[in-house]
């Protein structure tokens, strides 16, 4: 079977932590941009970007908020880059229970970076615009990618069947229930 090629625009914010001074202007601006009405109030704790101080290295790392996760990672990686160690958390954008970043302080609901999508669109996202130190840069890339073949239903059936054979029906049902609890509708 052949799949068609589609073009997609990938928006990226490049982060140069060597340039970040930890000034938190990005937090200020993001919170202003997402206030209603726009810019009417400032509150960095509502920003979708947080400047986190990497505790092992003592470097400032601006992190944009990604998806909500109900559980924290069990066992985190420590990476060595150029002779310096970094905790995985220092780069992770998840709104996660192990820290209070990316949680709306009043409602407790998770916050997520929306790349400042708006009508009319901004030339560059707010956080990038205010970063005078040029630690943040915005790039758009066109990527062509193959459309993934839809997995045929039969394959899931085969897979499930083998799981049932191995673990029993009850265990699979319970696991399914467990997994689906954590999934957002």
């Amino acid at each position: 079977m052949t799949a068609g090629l589609t073009t997609k625009t990938v928006k990226e914010i490049l982060v140069d932590i060597d340039k970040c001074t930890g000034c938190r202007a990005c937090e200020m601006a993001c919170s202003a941009y997402h206030a209603t009405p726009r810019y009417s109030s400032i509150n960095p704790s509502k920003a979708r970007i947080r400047v986190v101080c990497d505790e092992i290295n003592d470097e400032y790392v601006p992190i944009r908020a990604g998806d909500y996760t109900p559980s924290e990672c069990n066992g985190r990686h420590i990476y060595t880059i150029g002779g310096k160690q970094y905790s995985e958390c220092s780069f992770c954008g998840a709104s996660c229970p192990s820290r209070d970043y990316f949680v709306e302080p009043d409602s407790g609901l998770p916050l997520k970076c929306d790349m400042c999508e708006s009508v009319p669109a901004l030339e560059v996202p707010m956080c990038v615009k205010v970063c005078g130190a040029e630690a943040l840069t915005y790039v758009e890339r066109e990527v062509k990618r193959e459309e993934k073949e839809q997995v045929k239903r039969g394959e899931i059936e085969i897979g499930l069947e083998s799981l049932v054979k191995k673990h029993g029906v009850q265990a699979v049902i319970e696991t399914m229930a467990q997994i689906s609890k954590g999934l957002k509708p």
Binding site: S40, S41, S45
Partner: peptide, 27 residues
Amino acid sequence: RGTKELNIAHPAEMFEICQDIHLKMAA
């Protein structure tokens, strides 16, 4: 530690002027 809002009287104009000063300062 503070996580409350601070309100601005004329938000859009204030933000724009400050943005302008911010970038001038940087350069």
